[in-house]
Design a protein around this nucleic acid. Structure first.
Length: 536
RNA sequence: GCCGGUAUCGUCUAGGGGUUAGGACGGGUGGUUCUCAGCCAUCAAACCGGGGUUCGAAUCCCCGUACCGGUACCA
């Protein structure tokens, strides 16, 4: 079983095409077949090397690696159509000799006129066949004379072309509605319908899975296989991907390319898993499956016939699942660019990385996609007591809870850094003793004072993160890797903070990136002090 | 216009001559947690329309409608 994905490098990899690539890959992988990647760049006007390389990157990112093709080689190369021109040229001779192809000298204006006339008469606008009867000698003479010519395929009249489409079943077309297709353009470059057939045949492709937009090309291609005496592959046409309004998925629906989803912070396994679900079902009500499991279960016969609407909400759900499953280290690595974009992180060193790994995964587990992580972590890097109190609701609540704020600030003056959840809980209990408040009346004001926000990560996580982050700036050159390290560091710093007012307390984050490659984070004590002061 | 394709909750789908037509996402409600998220429970929500065939049709057939694709010297 040999399958291929053959994109045209005329832009970014669209999710519809990515899904086609995925289906090809799944079938190949699930059956021990070969997956081939070919670049169809015969449209020199629109094709770019840049686009080709990003498409390759996107495929690799999704995990859809190929066994043969561009950049990996193989026995059937080259795998770029622009490098196969000599092959197409050699084969066109055979077609001409067999009378299956002929030169056509019709001008574009003439063709356009024919088309209009046919439409006006209610006829299918196919090529009228004006040049079909031109003798080879005459054609030769005109070409030598400098006349522009294309090569057309001679489609036989009154034939019915029937083929079995693996997803759609029997499909039939009458050749009477098919005009003689252009095989070679006047500039000598082969047209799509010709190049695919030559390539698929020579590369030994056994199954062609492609978008439904190609279904009407299939009879022409079948005729070409017949003319060459080649055995055609099996075809499977998968339906197209639509936007929520049932029109083809386009920019106005939001992200449409793999690169855009990647940039927004979707994990590749999530995008791939979701795409597999669009038009296909693994059955048994199971939906969240890894790539190899999808490959094991994938069957072309089970692919749906109807167009699928791309559901961003469901994608988000799948992504959330994988965001929760991902390794903390990997999650941190892929999230750092978003933190850098917020100017909170530069190039973190080992200590900075260790710190991020203790909090980024928790933030990532609470969002739909990685680009939403920074707002979730703003409490660490962008704390501002004055800014928080500028919000009327926050101010009102803080005012009403003044005893809690007072008790918190007092208590924190005498509390060493709370580097874990237990230390925070113990501190909260002491505040409770001081002010007599409990539950929501206790914790929500604490949240306001310490994070500056009315909502966010649970305090058990947020407060230790604040403390560890604040410690980061003070213990230069000392890598802290584990929770135990942080705990030890917290104990060590006790003597410096204990009972000391210290230098001028930072009331606002100063925006400086510290030695760990992370912007300086205010400690809980500094925050409580500033919050109380700002409250007046 | 012509040719081809498609049609089950809003969306992705399971099923397929006799079912309370199942699941998931999203939505509603209640519970849980300091909050958001999450989690748990629970509710609403579908066989495009019309004719056949049949004891019986969402399922098979025909017609219609809607939508999608094609109708290029783009792929």
């Amino acid at each position: 079983m040999r399958l291929r994905f053959a994109p045209s490098p005329t832009g970014q990899l669209h999710v519809g095409n990515a899904r086609t690539a995925l289906f090809n890959w799944l079938l190949a992988r699930g059956n021990g077949g070969t997956f081939i990647l070919r670049i169809e760049d015969t449209d020199f006007e629109r094709s770019t090397a840049q686009s080709a390389s990003t498409i390759l990157d996107d495929l690799r990112w999704m995990g859809l690696t190929w066994d043969e093709g561009v950049e990996v080689g193989g026995d059937c190369g080259p795998y770029r159509q622009s490098e196969r021109l000599h092959i197409y040229r050699a084969h066109i001779v055979e077609l001409m000799a067999g009378g299956h192809a002929y030169h056509c000298f019709c001008s574009e204006a003439q063709l356009a006129q024919d088309r209009e006339a046919a439409l006006a008469a209610g006829q299918p606008p196919k090529y009228v066949g004006r040049c079909r009867g031109i003798s080879k000698q005459d054609a030769r003479r005109r070409i030598d004379n400098g006349d522009a010519a294309v090569v057309r395929f001679r489609v036989p009249d009154h034939r019915e072309i029937v083929f079995h489409d693996i997803v759609r079943g029997e499909v039939r077309f009458s050749t009477d509605v098919i005009g003689d297709p252009v095989l070679v353009r006047s500039d000598g470059i082969p047209a799509y319908n010709y190049a695919v057939v030559v390539d698929d045949a020579l590369m030994g492709i056994t199954h062609v899975i492609r978008g439904e937009d190609h279904i009407s090309n299939t009879p022409r291609q079948l005729l070409l296989y017949e003319a060459f005496g080649w055995k055609p592959p099996q075809f499977a046409h998968v339906s197209l991907v639509m936007g929520p309004d049932h029109s083809p998925l386009s920019k106005r629906h939001g992200a449409t390319s793999v690169a855009e989803f990647r940039a927004r912070g979707y994990l590749p396994e999530a995008l791939v898993n979701y795409m597999a679900l669009l038009g296909w079902s693994p059955g048994q009500g199971e939906e969240l499956l890894p790539l190899d499991e999808l490959a094991r279960r994938f069957r072309l016969e089970d692919v749906g016939h109807a167009a699928g609407i791309f559901d961003v909400d469901k994608l988000a759900w799948v992504n959330r699942h994988y965001l929760k499953m991902a390794e903390p280290q990997r999650l941190t690595t892929v999230t750092i660019p978003y933190l850098q974009a917020s100017q909170w992180v530069a190039e973190p060193d080992a200590a900075g990385l260790a710190f991020l790994e203790t909090i980024v995964p928790a933030a990532a587990a609470a969002v739909d996609r990685l680009e939403l992580v920074p707002p979730r972590l703003a409490f660490l890097f962008d704390y501002s007591a004055a800014g928080a109190l500028a919000n009327d609701a926050v101010k009102a609540e803080a005012l009403a809870a003044r005893p809690v704020i007072e008790a918190l600030a007092d208590e924190l003056e005498a509390t060493p850094p709370m580097v874990d959840r237990d230390a925070f809980r113990a501190m909260a209990m002491r505040v409770r003793e001081r002010c007599g408040q409990k539950g929501k009346a206790l914790f929500h004001p604490i949240r306001l004072a310490l994070t500056g926000e009315p909502e966010g990560l649970e305090l058990d996580l947020a407060v230790p993160a604040i403390e560890r982050g604040a410690l980061l700036g003070r213990l230069e050159g000392r890598p802290l890797r584990s929770h135990a390290d942080f705990r030890q560091a917290g104990a060590d710093s006790r003597s410096e903070t204990d009972g000391q007012v210290g230098p001028e307390p930072h009331v606002e984050a100063d925006g400086q990136v510290g030695p760990s490659g992370i912007r300086r984070i205010l400690s809980a004590a500094e925050r409580a002090r500033a919050f109380r002061a700002a409250l007046g």
